[in-house]
Structure formats: structure tokens, C-alpha cells
Design a protein around this nucleic acid. Structure first.
Length: 474
DNA sequence: AAAAAAC
């Protein structure tokens, strides 16, 4: 007989239920209490390997169940220590989880705490932007699991608030993002302080050369796990891009928010100033909006995110601080008010919706200058993003709009070359339908609802864009 | 060209 957990080709068998994975009973109870019954693909593949003590290199994002995929086996492995090391050991940190942003660290800590709260294991999370003293006290009292952003962790290490000499498991979450953010030297300093042998787990959206290099230096004979990447081609996310003049962006967003029945939306913009401004403008339009970006205090960031996660806030206007990993359960829609300069960030941004098999919608508004970015995105995701035409009712175009500013907060230089669509009559509330299967917007057949396309009057620029992009020299 | 992260 073969091992029931292993198939003949050496791959992990599928688990119909968490109860087959062999988790510690207390953990299994916590999992059941969370309402999860069937492991996700990444969980099926990664959990047995992690429980076996193997190093793994996983390509997966949050929303695939990645966090629980390493959190649960980690806790399982630490459970036996719960009794032997509960006395105030001087250096009890057994598992260290590093994440790139404060919000991600906090989110991972939430997951760890959810599954560990019935165990005696102590969990601490440390990140910058908040008072160090409470973190110091907690570290000095001792914790078996520590979740941290690299900078603040090094700060605590220098102050001798924590020692990593007993760490037996290291997790690098969103490793590619950490490299992007220049954390490599910090990671190297931290990893130098960890004992060997140890178990190391690395999770990354992509396996770039840099990531492989990192894996070679930090991991020991890792098993590679690739679950179907949740990229923009994921069928659960319906994408559409509407060309607009830069001075129409606010109206386009406002119109979308007011004319659609969307419970919650994240609006991504490219700058911190832009995020604050857009949130302010939406609030002045009676929308319950908040902004999150790196220039806000950590208290404000936490308040905005928790308000959004709890449903108290309906629109979160965000920079790319919120692009990766954040898990907002059941988020139906993401709006890209600016297209990101980095095509990969688009994939991450729209990955905030359509999570765990739920349906999601990603709407982008792009100007003529952003067309190249959209093309870069299409190249990356190897799929055309369907284009739509937006007829913005004139009320949205006239009230409180600031023609001299784009949503990035920069002077608008392009409105002359990319004219605004003519204001549609107020009863013209509609989005031009598009056909996801062909990737093309449907012809504007319904002239009763789209007066701008009825053949009378000047042909709008937007219609030209649909048939093919105008040759404008870039 | 912008954002993120330690003080």
C-alpha cells in the first residue's frame, strides 16, 4: 500500500477535508469554527510538506488560502513546544514571519491569532509607525510566533528586545514585493541571525531571477509549488477599461459609484496626494470614503482599513500600499482611477476582487497618456482588456470638477489632445455593454439610451478609440 | 515617475 498522502508520482494527494490533513485537534477545531471545510489547492499541496519540515517556494497570492496554508502547519509544528517552553524562556521566538507592509503583517497576525487563540502559543506582531514600547514589552515577555516588517524588527533587535537565536521556521511572505521595496539588505541581516538548520518558506507572486537567487541563499532544497496564478486572466474577474479625458476621471468614478449597485469599492490612484484628494472629493459628494497611503499615520491607516473591512466605509481610495495581499472578503469591484506605471501592480490591484472564487469586477479609467500603460498590462496578462464607452451624465461633469488637475494631483496637460466626451443627458445613465467572450464592446445599437452615437452631431473621440487607437505619435 | 519601509 502506498502512503495515503502521496500519489505514485510523488505529488500530494487531494484532501477532501481539513480533517484528513492531520492537524493538531485544537487547530482543526479552530479551522472548523472558521467555517472552512475543504482545503484550497495551495493548502493541499503546501500543508503536508510544511508539516514534514520541508522548505518550500510557493507561487501564490493571498486569497488563494496561502496565509492559512503556512499558518496552520506552522502552528501545528509549534504545538508540542507550547508546553515545554511556556515558562518565561529568555528567547522563545520559534517562528518568524516577515511581510513587506504593515497592513500585511497585521493581516497575517490576524490569521495566526484566529487559529492559535485556543492554544497557549503567544503571538506578537511588530511594525513601524506605532509606539515601540508596547511592542518591546510584549517581546520581552516572550512569544513563540513573531510577525514583523523588516525595518521595525531590526530596530527591536538592535535594542535587544528580541533574539532570533531559537527560530526554527522562517516565512517570507510576498517576497517579490520585499525585494521591490529594497528590503534585501535588511533580509540578509535578519537571516544571518537565524540558526541553522531551520525550515524556510518563501511565498512570492512570481519566481523572477532575483527571487530564485534569494531562494538559493535562504532556502534548503526547496520544493516548488505553483498554484494556478490568480492573475488578471482569472475568469472570476471581469475587466473593462474606459477611455476618458483626465478632467473627467472624477466624474467617471463618481458616476460609476452612484449609478451602480456596488456594496464596496477600492479606488486605486498613483499618488498619495491624489488618494487624499479623491477621498475628500468623494466625501463631499456624500460618499462614505476613506484614503489609505504611506503619508497617513499608522492609526489612520488602520482605521481606514478596518473601517473598510468591517463594511462601515464603502469606498477606500488607495495607493499601491493596498495593492498586494490585502484580503477584503467579498469585495465586488476595484476601480483603477489611474493605471499603475508597473503592469504587475495592475494584476495585484485587481486581485483584491474576485477572491476565493467569488465574482469580481475591475474597471479602469485611462487617459490618452495612459494608453501605453494599458498596452503594457495587456502584454503582461496576455489578454486584451475589453474597452467600453462611458457616457457620463452632465451633472457629474459640471459639479465640483477641477479641470486643471488630474487625479494624480498634477497639472493636466493633455486635455486639449484628448477631448472630453460630450456630456450625456441626465437620462443617459448607462454603461455600454461589452461582450466578455469576444473581448470587445458591443456596437452602440441602442440609440435610445446612447444619444451620442445616434449618427447626428460630431462623432465622439471615444467611439474612434473603440475601433482602433488613434495614431497620436506615442 | 511613484510607492513602500525604522527612528
Amino acid at each position: 500500500m502506498t502512503d495515503p498522502n502521496t500519489t505514485s508520482n510523488g505529488k500530494t494527494a487531494t484532501f477532501e477535508s481539513f480533517s484528513e490533513v492531520g492537524l493538531h485537534p485544537d487547530l482543526l477545531k479552530a479551522v472548523m469554527a472558521s467555517g472552512y471545510t475543504k482545503p484550497t489547492p495551495i493548502q493541499e499541496q503546501a500543508m503536508p510538506l510544511i508539516m514534514d519540515g520541508r522548505d518550500i517556494m510557493g507561487a501564490a497570492q493571498t486569497g488563494t488560502g496561502k496565509t492559512a496554508a503556512f499558518t496552520l502547519p506552522l502552528l501545528h509544528r509549534l504545538m508540542p513546544m507550547a508546553n515545554s517552553s511556556m515558562s518565561p524562556a529568555r528567547h522563545p521566538v520559534r517562528a518568524l514571519i516577515l511581510a513587506p507592509t504593515r497592513e500585511l503583517a497585521d493581516q497575517v497576525a490576524d490569521s495566526v491569532k484566529r487559529y492559535s487563540h485556543s492554544s497557549p502559543l503567544r503571538v506578537a506582531v511588530v511594525f513601524g509607525g506605532v509606539d515601540m514600547n508596547a511592542q518591546r514589552d510584549q517581546l520581552r515577555k516572550g512569544c513563540e510566533l513573531l510577525i514583523a516588517t523588516p525595518g521595525r524588527l531590526l530596530d527591536h533587535i538592535e535594542q535587544k528586545n528580541v533574539s532570533l537565536s531559537q527560530v526554527s521556521v522562517l516565512v517570507l511572505d510576498e517576497a517579490d514585493r520585499m525585494l521591490d521595496m529594497g528590503f534585501l539588505p535588511d533580509l540578509e541581516r535578519i537571516v544571518r541571525l537565524l540558526p541553522k538548520p531551520r525550515q524556510s518558506l518563501l511565498f512570492s507572486a512570481t519566481f523572477s531571477n532575483d527571487i530564485r537567487k534569494l531562494a538559493r541563499s535562504f532556502l534548503n532544497n526547496p520544493v516548488e509549488i505553483n498554484v494556478a496564478p490568480r492573475n488578471a486572466t482569472a475568469e472570476t474577474v471581469t475587466q473593462i477599461a474606459y477611455p476618458v479625458a483626465a478632467n473627467e476621471k472624477k466624474a467617471a468614478v463618481l458616476y460609476t459609484l452612484k449609478s451602480r449597485n456596488l456594496s464596496q469599492v477600492i479606488v486605486f490612484v498613483n499618488t498619495k496626494i491624489g488618494a487624499s484628494r479623491v477621498a475628500r472629493e468623494l466625501v463631499s459628494e456624500g460618499i462614505n470614503a476613506e484614503s489609505i497611503h504611506g503619508d497617513r499615520s499608522q492609526a489612520e491607516r488602520i482605521k481606514a482599513l478596518e473601517g473598510f473591512k468591517s463594511g462601515d466605509i464603502s469606498v477606500l481610495v488607495a495607493t499601491d500600499v493596498a495593492a498586494r495581499g490585502l484580503d477584503v472578503v467579498g469585495l465586488p469591484c476595484v476601480i483603477n482611477m489611474d493605471l499603475p506605471y508597473n503592469a504587475e501592480d495592475y494584476v495585484h490591484r485587481i486581485g483584491r476582487t474576485g477572491r476565493a472564487g467569488a465574482k469580481g469586477e475591475a474597471i479602469a479609467f485611462y487617459t490618452q497618456t495612459e494608453e501605453r500603460l494599458l498596452e503594457d498590462i495587456e502584454k503582461l496578462i496576455k489578454t486584451p482588456v475589453p474597452r467600453g464607452v462611458l457616457s457620463i451624465p452632465s451633472v457629474f461633469l459640471t459639479r465640483g470638477h477641477h479641470p486643471s488637475r488630474s487625479s494624480s494631483g498634477k497639472p493636466e496637460r493633455y486635455k486639449k489632445t484628448f477631448p472630453a466626451s460630450r456630456a450625456a443627458p441626465i437620462d443617459d445613465f448607462f454603461f455600454r455593454p461589452y461582450e466578455p467572450s469576444t473581448g470587445k464592446a458591443q456596437p452602440a445599437a441602442d440609440t435610445t439610451t446612447n444619444r451620442r452615437h445616434d449618427g447626428h452631431g460630431p462623432k465622439p473621440m471615444l467611439a474612434v478609440l473603440l475601433g482602433g487607437r488613434p495614431n497620436n505619435g506615442n
